[in-house]
Write a protein that binds this DNA or RNA. Structure first.
Lengths: 343, 343
DNA sequence: AACGAAACCGCAAACGATTGCATTGAAAAA
DNA sequence: TTTTTCAATGCAATCGTTTGCGGTTTCGTT
């Protein structure tokens, strides 16, 4: 018994037929007698034959593998996306190759290269914070290579993308704070070069305007890193520096919201009586902290699943990229908890 | 210009040499004139030649890809492990194929099969809660196939594994609670078929014994799912049912610890004055909740990195599995925060 | 008996790269 | 001039599978 897997040739030798016959018999091609098919399958079973996926990939120029490029694995939202991706990919018979860029453009580019070397059938991308030039993506798109962007989507022609309705999520959250009687609402924004950040800012601003309030640029503060400690520092500074003390924070992510909460507590401010807080993403810990954190939930798993379905449809030609006009937008949901309710 | 990548043949045709010459020139084999090498490399550059990894895999029966089988991606600890894995794999030139089992044995087995079909060079595994029979692993091990287990490791011969010192972590945590004057310490345990759970129970028990306290089986409660809501229910039941009300909880995971905390708060018990709590894993939210949660930190990223380094060493024959006797054990660290300190 | 058509099956090329074993040609040695 | 030697390159098999094309049987039909 050879080491490793049995091959078609092994079956062929055992039965004194050609490799072609074995191949066709296993695939139930016409032109092979039932008798032969039976025997081939029997021997295949006996030898635990499993087709060599690599040889298949080479022959068909298809690997049944998709690549995922993500900024950070250790990030609740992205982990739910990965989970959604993996689920759909598995059920449709595809493997998932994963790389994280750690927000580095260089790694993004080199990841794409190795993926192309490996005959990856398509790529799912959420690009890095460093990425401002999208040439490495548009080149592939123009070659007809299947790519689907999710969450962080570029504004380039013919890009297929799946995102959440950041605008509406931010709008709803801000509006909720206003309804609760908060009037000096600070927005802790994400990196302003990302479209998702811009959309959230826009939602925040529109909510203010439609409620007859003014927009003060000083009340929009960028938290570029996105950790709780960063936002904690920023918030405690703000609490002192702003002419009118803020009475609410709408943060572009939950970590920042927690930072703000900690800073407020440190200042002796009561939440939600004196300060209201709403986050974004609905991380697991939202329900675990005190007071529980209101947050805009992003359907991460659904986003991963949807993006994967679209990518695989493109790969399998069930979906013509040209028929797609705009990005697919998934709805968010404002989950109201204690941190923002005082009525 | 052809669609897709240029091949060695394209270069050969362009220069009127054979494919073998091109191959050798690119690899700087001796026996190729410097002049030819120069020209070959020049054309390769011009055509943006990149070797086809699939063809290489077929030829060499090596894919430079490793497989990762994990119970759940959406799990802070595992996500840090993945991050560690991906980092090392990337820097050593390997791809990572990821599958999650969702704690299902069937998926674990089918994942392994597709990985073998794909000529994966080795596998990193943390098995599912359903897995009690390890035949599908030991078969591979006996064939000399490189496998490294992490976190959840099986007790089978010749298994290479990396784990944290669950025993000591649990011992230290329990001991800390005792030092703080807590006397009726409940242990919220994990699934008892997992070795990590057993080790933590053992650490808990030994700490009690060495402090001259008795072990009461009623004070060891299994939280099999591991969510905060599960443990919240269990804890509030316990608070009423046990003859002596517990004054501390050592949980086998942070989610369970939070559940216990919430249940205690609901009962009006003050933490840490009346009840002390320590968790396990040091999830991100530990510092974000109030009171901040003491926890035993597991070096997830380091574990992933270590396991990957060992796996790749085995693959590259730099490491002989037979020279390894026991599992590699990484140290935990007790991070003391407010939830357990009353002195 | 002879012919044609199914029915079955094998040959060989192809996917892209590597590599042991020739082969070529020219310079060096005789 | 002839032989030897060696550097430079090509041939062809190989990895495991698929597939177009062609080749044998076998059988029914007249």
């Amino acid at each position: 018994m050879k080491i490793g897997q049995a091959t078609i040739k092994d079956i062929a030798i055992e039965l004194n037929v050609s490799a072609s016959t074995v191949s066709r018999a296993l695939k139930n091609y016409p032109g092979i007698s039932d008798e032969t098919k039976r025997k081939v399958k029997e021997v295949a079973e006996k030898l635990h034959y499993r087709p060599n996926a690599i040889a298949l990939s080479l022959r068909k120029s298809r690997s049944f593998t998709i690549g995922v490029i993500i900024p950070e694995v250790v990030h609740f939202f992205f982990s739910t996306v990965i989970s959604g991706i993996e689920g759909v990919a598995f059920s449709r018979g595809y493997n998932v190759i994963l790389t994280q860029t750690n927000e580095k453009l260089a790694r993004e580019i080199s990841s794409i290269e190795t993926m192309l070397d490996n005959q990856i059938d398509g790529i799912l991308v959420s690009f890095s914070k460093e990425t401002t030039d999208f040439e490495h993506f548009s080149k592939l798109i123009n070659q007809g290579y299947p790519i689907v962007f999710f969450d962080r989507v570029p504004e380039i022609p013919n890009a297929i993308s799946v995102m959440v309705d950041d605008y509406k999520g931010a709008y709803t959250a801000t509006n909720h704070l206003i309804t609760q009687g908060f009037r000096n609402i600070v927005h802790l924004a994400g990196p302003k070069n990302l479209k998702i950040s811009q959309e959230r800012i826009r939602g925040y601003q529109d909510a203010l305007i439609e409620n007859g309030m003014k927009i003060d640029p000083d009340y929009i503060v960028e938290c570029s890193i996105g950790t709780d400690s960063e936002s904690q520092k920023i918030t405690s500074k703000i609490l002192k520096s702003l002419p009118v003390r803020p009475d609410a924070f709408f943060a572009s992510n939950d970590m920042a919201a927690v930072g703000a909460m900690l800073a407020c507590k440190a200042e002796g401010l009561r939440i939600p009586e004196e300060v209201g807080i709403v986050g974004f993403s609905n991380w697991q810990f939202c329900t675990m902290i005190d007071p529980s954190l209101s947050s805009v939930s992003q359907p991460g798993s659904k986003m991963g699943a949807k993006a994967t379905d679209m990518l695989l449809d493109m790969i399998e030609k069930k979906l013509d990229p040209n028929t797609i006009t705009g990005p697919v937008v998934l709805e968010t949901e404002l989950l109201i908890r204690k941190s923002s309710v005082r009525l």
